[in-house]
């Protein structure tokens, strides 16, 4: 089965990412496909290139886990409208708005809302991970 996923919660404040990553890994382990993971609302903060994971005994590194999914061929797409208003910019947007640096991790890409609907239209199932 083909799945489309969406993450709405910010890193280390909502459990959205832990649930989404766990679900995605389980889907792949069961032989399903993931069309795209879409980051919307405060979920866009996952795509910042400047995270420092909280230093606790558990050392959950969400950026590394997303990287691992991305290396496995999963597309990580960030809503551009939700992203740029929260400071998530790639080189193009950095130049457009004359900002001091780009902030988007190379693991992610900025896309329009059409990419969310496109993924949902293609997928058999759409699952949202709210904040």
């Amino acid at each position: 089965m083909i799945y489309a996923l969406a993450v709405h919660g910010a890193p280390y404040s909502s459990n959205a990412a832990e649930h989404a990553i766990g679900f995605a890994e389980a889907l792949l382990a069961c032989g399903h496909q993931i069309e795209r993971v879409f980051f919307f609302h405060e979920g866009v903060y996952h795509s910042l290139n400047s995270h420092v994971p909280p230093q606790t005994r558990y050392n959950v590194n969400l950026a590394r886990r997303w990287q691992s999914l991305h290396s496995g061929g999963i597309e990580l797409a960030v809503c551009i409208a939700s992203g740029i208003k929260r400071g998530v910019v790639n080189e193009t947007e950095q130049e457009r708005y004359d900002l001091p640096s780009d902030t988007l991790s190379k693991t992610f890409e900025l896309v329009g809302l059409g990419q969310l609907i496109g993924a949902i239209a293609t997928a058999d199932r759409y699952v949202e991970f709210p904040a």
Binding site: F40, H41, A81, L113, L116, I117, I120, A121
Partner: peptide
């Protein structure tokens, strides 16, 4: 901003 963003998503879905 959630409601506005939901409605924008709905409009994109209709446009597709």
């Amino acid at each position: 901003s959630v409601v506005l963003e939901q409605l924008e998503t709905a409009m994109v879905a209709a446009a597709f």
